[in-house]
């Protein structure tokens, strides 16, 4: 199934600052809402790919390869994270 998110690219909302921790996790800081978020290692990997302009459709393939997942499972994980990050106002559709 192709989800809504795979049809467009996503990018971090301007003003979201992030840092990567030693363990591969990441912390995001939303300058607008003054809220902090943490991402686990795979979440940080996906965030990194999206924030460097990797098309959403390609991110699932990279996740599948890195974590030895079948593509459908990787796609679901990517879609779920994109949905959560979008709901939190951290990701925007890249026109």
């Amino acid at each position: 199934m192709t989800t809504q998110s795979t049809k467009c690219n996503m990018k971090p909302k301007p003003g979201v600052v992030h840092t990567e921790m030693e363990a591969g996790t990441a912390v995001l800081l939303d300058m607008e809402t003054h809220r902090y978020f943490s991402l686990n290692e795979s979440g940080a990997f996906i965030w990194n790919k999206l924030s460097t302009g990797t098309p959403v459709a390609d991110v699932a393939s990279l996740v599948a390869e890195r974590y030895s997942l079948d593509h459908a499972k990787a796609q679901r994980d990517v879609d779920n994270l994109i949905s959560e990050l979008s709901k939190a106002g951290l990701l925007l559709k890249d026109a």
């Binding site: 301007p14 003003g15 600052v17 992030h18 840092t19 921790m21 030693e22 363990a23 996790t25 912390v27 800081l29 300058m31 003054h34 902090y36 943490s38």
Partner: peptide
């Protein structure tokens, strides 16, 4: 460390002044 970072952010002075310096501070 990640829990400590969240706690430390609460005590950081002027964290939300601007994105550029916030990135350095983070």
């Amino acid at each position: 460390p990640v829990e400590a970072l969240f706690l430390a952010l609460e005590q950081a002075a002027g964290l939300f002044v601007d994105a550029k310096s916030a990135s350095s501070q983070l």
